[in-house]
Simulated assay, not measured.
Amino acid sequence: MPVDETKNWTDLTVSAFAALGRGRTNDAARLWLQAAAVVDEATSTASIIAASHSNAGIAHLILENRREADVDFREADERWSEVIESVATLDIPMTGSSSFHFRLATKVPQLLIEAGRRRYRHIAEAAQAITRFNRLFVDADNLASGLVDREARELASTLGEILGSASAEVCLLTMTSERADDATIFSHYNSKIADFAHRQPALASALSADCAAFEKAVALTALLGPRAFSAIERQKENAETRFENSNVTRT
């Protein structure tokens, strides 16, 4: 993937998270769709393509285009499967934070390579699980039946082991509507990009180009938590109410 294209995609995607963090849901949707538009699927890495389709799926949900959302989520799911399969041949750089790691890399390089590939497979599986969870919102019956909340609990357990129990994703999955207002719910997307900004310089300097793109794609795959989805729906209802009230006032 060309460097300029990667930077454009990253900047637009991060801006989308920032917009959602401020509760500007329609702006976030438009930015995610703009990010998807700059990705050239002929030259981009599968992980970036997967993340882009997954985020575009959320954008379409926000804009109430459920059919388009389903198409993007399906495509993202297929791409994540390709990514997971490709981990078996992923080039893992032999770097370490200490002389012990350096000596270990020279003595048993394959051991460290396989350990690295296991990690990448796990985080790719986490990203695919996020995409599959997001897709549940396409069908309103999944909310009414309680399926979304059940899957949220299971996914929170899985992501807690891979991303950490304090990650933005786990917080979005476990928070309850009684404990948070909309601003607090959306603020977790700000935490997400703050963590991304903190980690990216170190990751980019220590990893190969393929690994850096992999990490970036997973880190920038958005999760639509149940409470976040409810907050987005409330925004739409409030906007409709204001529009109706303004029409009544004019008449």
Rank of each mutant, 00 (worst) to 15 (best):
S230P: 04
T106H: 09
L112E: 02
M1Y: 08
E154D: 13
D210F: 10
F73C: 08
T176W: 07
T249F: 11
L136A: 04
A204N: 15
T13F: 03
R74V: 11
L104V: 13
A115T: 10
L31V: 09
D181G: 14
E82F: 05
Q128S: 00
N190C: 12
A105R: 15
D141L: 12
N8P: 02
V108G: 04
S52R: 06
L111C: 05
C211F: 11
N245V: 02
W80I: 01
S145A: 15
S246I: 03
E151T: 11
R30K: 15
T89S: 09
T241V: 09
A36T: 05
E85D: 05
R234T: 12
R66E: 06
S205I: 14
R30D: 05
L61R: 01
P226Y: 10
V39E: 00
A231I: 02
N8Y: 04
A197P: 04
A46D: 14
G23W: 08
A140C: 09
Q110N: 10
M175P: 07
W80T: 00
G164N: 15
R74W: 13
D70S: 14
A217V: 02
L143V: 05
L111W: 12
R118C: 01
P93L: 11
T6C: 05
A168D: 03
F229K: 06
L104T: 12
D139A: 10
V39A: 01
R121G: 08
V71H: 13
A152K: 00
D182E: 15
A50S: 13
E82I: 12
A204G: 13
A231W: 08
Q235S: 08
E85A: 10
D91M: 06
R121H: 11
N134D: 11
V83W: 04
L12H: 08
G21A: 06
M175T: 13
D181Y: 12
D77I: 14
A239L: 00
R79Y: 06
